[in-house]
Structures are given as C-alpha cells and as structure tokens.
Design a protein around this nucleic acid. Sequence first.
DNA 1: GTCTATAACTCGATAGAC
DNA 2: GTCTATCGAGTTATAGAC
Lengths: 185, 185
Amino acid sequence: MTGRQALLDRAVDYLSRSGIGDISLRRLAEELGTSHRMVIYHFGSRDGLLTAVVAEVERQQRDLLDAVMDPDLPTIEQGRDYWRAVVAATERHGRLFFELGAHAMQDREHARPLRRGLIDPWLPPLEALCRGLDVPEQDVIPTARLALATARGLLFDLLLTGDRVEVDAAAEQLNQLLVRRSLRS
Amino acid sequence: MTGRQALLDRAVDYLSRSGIGDISLRRLAEELGTSHRMVIYHFGSRDGLLTAVVAEVERQQRDLLDAVMDPDLPTIEQGRDYWRAVVAATERHGRLFFELGAHAMQDREHARPLRRGLIDPWLPPLEALCRGLDVPEQDVIPTARLALATARGLLFDLLLTGDRVEVDAAAEQLNQLLVRRSLRS
DNA sequence: GTCTATAACTCGATAGAC
DNA sequence: GTCTATCGAGTTATAGAC
C-alpha cells in the first residue's frame, strides 16, 4: 500500500522541515507513517534511504532549473525571475539543501554525488544569462560562477536571519551592478 | 592534566576535519584522547560540548574579523586581503562552519546563537570597506550584505568542488564590478 | 507488503573509588 | 582530574509468520 515513491516524497518533505541531524531510522519511519521494517524493505538501510533522498533532491533541482529558465523572456527580467524562483524553492527545501551540502563537503557516502551536482548543472544556464546581459565573453564564466555563489550566500543569510527585505535588496544590488556594466559597453 | 580548554581546542580541530554528523560522545572522547567520563566532567553532556564548540567558533570568527580589517591599507587592497584571509581560515574550519550553519537554520539548541552571529558581526566592517570604495551611501548596506553573501557562496563552492582557480576568478569579478562603479562616480 | 520478535550492539549519563 | 562499572534506554538490522 505504501509505495516506495510515496515514502520517498514524505521523507524529503519531513527532512526538509526537520533536518536530518542524527534522526534514527525508527523515529523517521514513524514520522513517515510507516514502520522501520518497511523502510528497510524499500531502501535496504538507513543510509540507503538517505542516498535515495539525495537523488530525489538532485532531481528536484534539475526540474527547478528547467522551469526557471525561460529563454523567451527579456534577459533583465530573467535575472529577477531566477532569483524569485530560487527563493521560493529554497524556503521549502533550503535547510535540507544546506545540510546535504555540508554532508557532501565531509565526503559522506550518501551525499558524494552532490559535490559536483550542486554546482556544475547550474552554470550553463547562468552563462547564457550573462551573455544575454552582454557581459564580455572573457568574463562570462567567472561571472556566472559569481552569480551562483551570490544566490547561495544570500539564501544562507535568509535561512539564518529571515531578513527577507534586506536580502532582497542585496540581490537587487548584484542585478544593478551587472546591468549597469552592460549599459556602458 | 587534560584541561578544559585543551580538550575544547582538540574538539574544534577534530570536528573541523571530520564533521559533527551523528558522532557519539564516546567515539569523540576517544578521538580527543580522553574518556567519555572526562567530557561529561568538563562539559556536562554531549550537547554541552557542542554548545562550547559553537562559542569557540564564534570567538575564532571575531578574532579573524579583527585580524583581517586593517584600516591603514588602501581600500582596494583591503578587498583582496579580506578574501585571501577568509579563504585561508575556511580551508581549515569551513566544513564545520557550514555544518553549524545548517544546525542553526534548523534551530538546534546548541547552534541557536549562530542565527544572527554568522551574519551581524560581519556587516559593519564590510560597510566601512564599501564606503572606502565610494559606494553611494544609499547602497552601502545592501552592498555589504551582498559582499558577505558572495564570500560565503564562493566558499561553499570551493569546499564542494575544490576549484580554487575558478572560485578566485569569480571573487575577482565582484571586486572589479565594485571598483569599476566607483571610477564612474 | 506488513507485522512481531529478537539478536547484537551502542548510546548518554550516573555512581563512586582513588 | 581520572578511572571502572553499570543502568536503562534506544539503536540497526534480521528472521520469519501471515
């Protein structure tokens, strides 16, 4: 009755709200409305479940990326759309995102795919956005990496402080800096 | 013989290298070269030790901040010095920094002081740096917040990918954007 | 797919000697 | 400040019935 995918969805949802921390297999299973035995049945082990959660988070990131990047919009609007969509997604899943990021930095088995997976797939669309803003070609790659880092850093700030207005204002500063440069070239 | 401070230093060092994760009090004590009984004696509980680790990390951050900000240097050099010093400190303690940041986002008891402590103390020196770069007064506060977020986001990238050259290039882009604006004002 | 039972450990914390 | 001993609870994972 309780299929694997339904269980996985509920796991991502629960862990996004409460964190992984050192939650036990049994407590987690109970929170998901099932038994520890069922988690073992579907995922093999506690670590197997975490590995599946990581794969699911990666999949959701790709979906978000595809949804955000609408190449038919004017480029300046794309920058703001990008920021808005990423913020919306992050307010739901951001705490899990940063916790898994920390796990990946520590080379924990289940999070290892994220070491490149949290960075590489995001760069090409941002490079396209930079080109749309007429960033000089030799600056496109570092500027895209800068924009990605800034988004992550601002989300880190937002999730810690909740200072939405101040963080939005900082994001707008980067937009201004990039747009203003393109007006001079 | 094994004083509280020596134990704390070793704990910060060990956790910086290996992460907190769900390490047990007993295993951690063993890694520190003492017994679980001694950790309880000095810190009261496992959580008491983590609380002390958080306070120590906060103290180290303040020390770093004081060391980095030398108001007698030319301002443009200060920006690069700032970045270099933060990178050096982060390569030692960055994984612990981001793990504790994730704990703070989840409102875990021991990490709660970090919710504002990872952001607020860093802003005034960066605001001073912005003023030194002739950023217009109404943009100083959001630009400082932007610079802080960018540093954190780039460190997040660096710790995941190890792409030192690419990350340095992205940091230099922000420097360029800020300096170039000041040349026009 | 779902359940109970249980093996085999490890946990945090305490007691109390030295 | 350091040690051993131990309590009571909770842990992952497995066995096997239904």
